[in-house]
Nucleic acid binder design. Structure first.
Lengths: 253, 253
DNA sequence: AGAAACCAGTTGTCATGACAACCTGACATC
DNA sequence: GATGTCAGGTTGTCATGACAACTGGTTTCT
């Protein structure tokens, strides 16, 4: 194995419920992010990797496909698989701001500003596939990271989730975590990112000038039965928050 | 085959250079978008689909995985594959605004405002992995859709691309198309979406009030050798443009 | 009636095997 | 030097086969 070729130092636990391909992908991702697989280098070829790791080549391929889809490697036909610079960030996947911040090592805290049952506004009703005016649970939170407000979040969920989305829960965890803990599996979301000027209340809460620019994000999330379970409308101070993401070309995977 | 089960009516061209799994995925996607596979319905099961289409089950699985990753279906273990509502939009993939608009049926037109060789500003140089002050090609365009300005776009590319990114080309096509036509394959990008207030010139060009909110997008694109080939900084009038996307949960695919 | 066990149906994982397509570098030819 | 050919190396596609894991419905037991 040439010095130019990275080695994965992978340890695959064959007793684990986590699939081999996923373990391998995670191991490789960690190696890339920690610089053990340095950017600009090529992975060992698939056949050799499969031999070394004592897994089948499709298993290796599947792990690498995961990495490619996350923008961590670029595969070229006939050439090999290139590790790319990791300034390229996170793939676009459905996650919550709470989870994101935790992952980024920023301690998120939450102020619950409101939690009430309301008739669904038209757009919320439409999005949650409810009749106009159906009662839904509405809650509003101010999220802070390192004691700076970074998001004002308004959410609506069907009333059936009232006992899942408790006041206590909302204070200590993110919404998606609460849902997950109660067996609700989010699988998909429709998302719109935009911008607008801050209204007075928002400006005050987010500590931006009135009329200053806000980044906005609206999201409708669906569970694994395809049912909409959340309508969210979040605003962020533009000076302190932006969406960073890696984007991959349509690679047929 | 129950009435509840969708049928794909797929026609697979085995002589085509397009892989079977990709053809199948495209056929299914078309059927979904045209309502022939109606949302809320389940696809026929994998084994049966494979039998009907005379392909292997992994080929079917791979096509379905593509759809799942695009947010068009949700797969549930033991249950089947659910077609989801197609209000859920486009997957996040590396593409250009020009291509997007064309795809959306909006006739894009372009006004080239500037094209010049300049020393790279620090951020551009850093992003394109060039020495500070290296000369690069800078160009600025105003993009209109249905005669409304919807983007002001500033881009920088390495000087080696000077003869690819011509004045004529920029007027009639998008940048990514020009690159593609010259054998440059973009594979990955790092992207930041934010917001800010419009400066006076921008406001005039985009027909928004000075100080009004703009949606911003900065992007660094990389080719298939992992080399950065484009730095782009685009601004959009918030009232007329937003990013719509579908987002999928981390599904291990 | 409620809980546990069972079963059929479906997706998920993994392996083996074969061949095609692409790419690069070396070599031959003009 | 430029162009063409070819072999070796690598990724890409596809098939066959086997088994595991999950789900919901049905049956059995308490």
């Amino acid at each position: 194995m040439g010095a130019r070729r990275g080695r994965t130092d992978a340890v695959l636990d064959r007793e684990s419920p986590v699939p081999l391909y996923y373990q391998l992908a995670q191991n490789m991702e960690t190696a890339i992010r920690q610089g053990r697989l340095s950017s600009g280098s090529h992975l060992e070829n698939e056949i050799e990797l499969a031999r070394q790791l004592r897994v089948s080549r499709p298993t290796v391929r599947r792990a690498i496909a995961l990495l490619a889809n996350r923008g961590l490697v670029i595969r070229r036909h006939g050439i090999g698989t290139l590790v790319v610079p990791v300034r390229v960030r996170r793939p676009v996947r459905l996650s919550s701001l709470y989870d994101d911040l935790q992952e980024a090592g920023q301690t998120p805290s939450t102020r619950l500003l409101a939690r009430e049952i309301v008739p669904a506004p038209a757009e919320v009703a439409g999005s949650l596939q409810l009749s106009r005016g159906t009662r839904v649970l509405h809650f509003e939170r101010l999220r802070l990271a390192t004691d700076q407000p970074i998001a004002l979040m308004r959410n609506f969920v069907p009333l059936s989730l009232e006992e899942v989305v408790t006041e206590e829960g909302l204070k200590s965890a993110g919404l998606y975590q609460l849902l997950r803990q109660n067996g609700i599996h989010l699988r998909l979301a429709s998302q719109t990112i935009g911008a607008r000027s801050a209204q007075r209340r928002e400006a005050r809460l987010l500590k931006v000038p009135a009329g200053g620019p806000l980044l906005t994000m609206r999201r409708i999330s669906y569970d694994d039965a395809g049912q909409p379970v959340e309508y969210g409308s979040h605003v962020y101070p533009a000076e302190r928050y932006s969406f960073e993401m890696s984007v991959v070309a349509d690679s047929r995977t």
